[in-house]
Design a protein around this nucleic acid. Structure first.
Lengths: 190, 190, 190, 190
DNA sequence: AATGAATGAGATTTCATTCAT
DNA sequence: GATGAATGAAATCTCATTCAT
């Protein structure tokens, strides 16, 4: 990915996150990237292709981030904690990408079906960690697939939290709290 | 709200949920409602007004549903459980409304800021339940605001689950599982 | 076909004939028709649909013109002469339509393949007249299909003649001459 | 004309014939020629210049072909027959060039007016053969200019025939038939 | 000689809104 | 109350041309 393409890629994430897919205009993306409109079409066949490229690259990046760190641990509970922490902090670091995903996951257009497939693949990937946790006895036995979704829900809630409340101060604390809720629940043990 | 307006209202939810705000066309809404395009403008000033009307009515409905049932219970843990169950089942019953909210919450347009405010208000409302739970010693002491978001996240995850997996069979079971995860966590107690 | 649509239809023929299909712009057609660009799209789905509509209507018109007059004659040679005369005079009266056909018949786009099919159908239709002429002994026995093409070629030559030479004075004389060439040839009988 | 320029020249004919002038893109021509787009502009000033170059070269070639063969005969009827035969077979051998001419002859752009002038010059050239035929008593006396157009029309009809029917088998037979029709007409002599 | 990234003017198309009926 | 033809601003996309390498 050369400089121009990278610049378009980053600008598109910014604009898509602010305006949604249909609200984002090629003019806005071009202007944000500091290139002419025609240049977008030199590097991408269409607006939809920019979108798909973003999704593909973004999901790849997340997967790599997780694998890099998780591979260092051999304790499965640690791995799961790392998995959660990384995703939770990515919500902050790649907030624009998350907004694009979360706003575009709901419709019935082809690009949205593909996005859903990508998200489902990611959730299945985290599911495999949970199943290893069940085998090792550190995660409660149960519907690992649904559990993986619950975990994804926590990511979502964090994204919404970040969206509505701009408090960036206590990021680490926030992440630890969320992690605790998901692992141990919110109900007081009797 | 007369029949025509109601028909437009329901069609608009359907179209907004399928296409997003910008992707939805007045043509599509009119055609879904079985009326002429001009009729939309007889009942609503603009597309944005249809959207705002939907959000207002929808949030009102949810709040009423919760209050109706919660008022019957006097045990706060029961109230919280009911609160969760109702919202989780609403994800299924009003799935189109949820899609509209979830897809439109992320941008910076005026209508989106207003939507966020409405959602935040709703979360604060559930927060008050959690605080009562803390006072009564059934919910772990902690950041009740963040906890309310976590709860909202579970709603989100259920919505995404419903979106990707069409299994409608075991709805009650699903809800009970989600409820258990949020209350008791996913980690095995030692 | 209401007034607006008719106006678009006629303007489009004019513009297509002057600029070709790709050279014609929707702006030019709209401006010629005295309507807004959006109005074109209210009546036709696309530029291509305008083109196809023109071809369909135009061929229909020609066929009707021929049938109307030919049905009055019972002598087959008279019918064939009428067939030729009508087409030759149509070259002048509907010169813009002919230019559209002649300029667009050559490519490999879908609309052009359809146009070719329409032209071929028309040629086959004139072929049936020639075959009747052969049966009645007034037309030389031979390849009636190729002969029908030769007849079409005379139409073409007249169109090119009209294009290059603006002499409109002696239209009837011109037609009679062309008719004589095609029926009796240009070579001096020995 | 070096190899690169020749390759561009031939590719341009192919693309122009398939897409028309406005439909042909410099990208398509470059890709067909197997060179970069910039290379086109090294050899030609503009798209229009490529077009004009093609017309000039093509007309030159046709004239030379005719003169070469016609000069061998001294009988004028033979010359005229040769003239027809060569042009009719050129329709097959240089079909792409013919398509370019036939599709581009109709508009009002400068390049098209120039093309018409070139065609008219060619028709006047064949006219001079017909006049010699009239003087020698082998061609019917009459409007030699119109007659030359009729002859050109037969070329057109053959091109359309070739376009719609791919039967390449009986080329010589086809040409002889066309020649007969134009010389002797299609009507049965009584 | 040749390249191909970049451009921007201009093309086709979309669609929320208006308005006369 | 309801309609749908008409609009025009703005969207996506195309492509001949330029220019630094």
């Amino acid at each position: 990915m050369n400089d121009t393409k990278k610049s378009i890629f980053e600008s598109a994430i910014k604009i898509f996150s602010k305006c949604g897919y249909n609200g984002a205009t090629m003019d806005a993306i071009a202007s944000e990237a500091g290139v002419a409109k025609g240049t977008l079409y030199y590097h991408f066949k269409s607006k939809e292709e920019i979108f798909n490229f973003i999704v593909r690259e973004g999901m790849e990046l997340i997967k790599n981030s997780i694998e890099d760190v998780a591979s260092e641990k051999d304790n499965i509970l640690c791995k799961i904690k790392v998995l959660c922490r990384i995703q939770l902090s990515l919500v902050y670091e790649s907030r624009d990408f998350f907004k694009v995903v979360m706003s575009q996951i709901w419709g019935e257009e082809l690009r949205q079906l593909e996005l859903r497939a990508a998200i489902n693949k990611h959730i299945c990937y985290t599911q495999s960690y949970l199943e290893e946790g069940m085998d090792k006895g550190v995660i409660k036995r149960g519907d690992s697939y649904l559990m993986a979704y619950t975990l994804f829900g926590t990511i979502c809630s964090t994204a919404v939290y970040e969206l509505i409340n701009d408090d960036k101060g206590s990021l680490d604390q926030l992440i630890e709290r969320q992690l605790k809720y998901i692992l141990e629940g919110i109900q007081e043990r009797k």
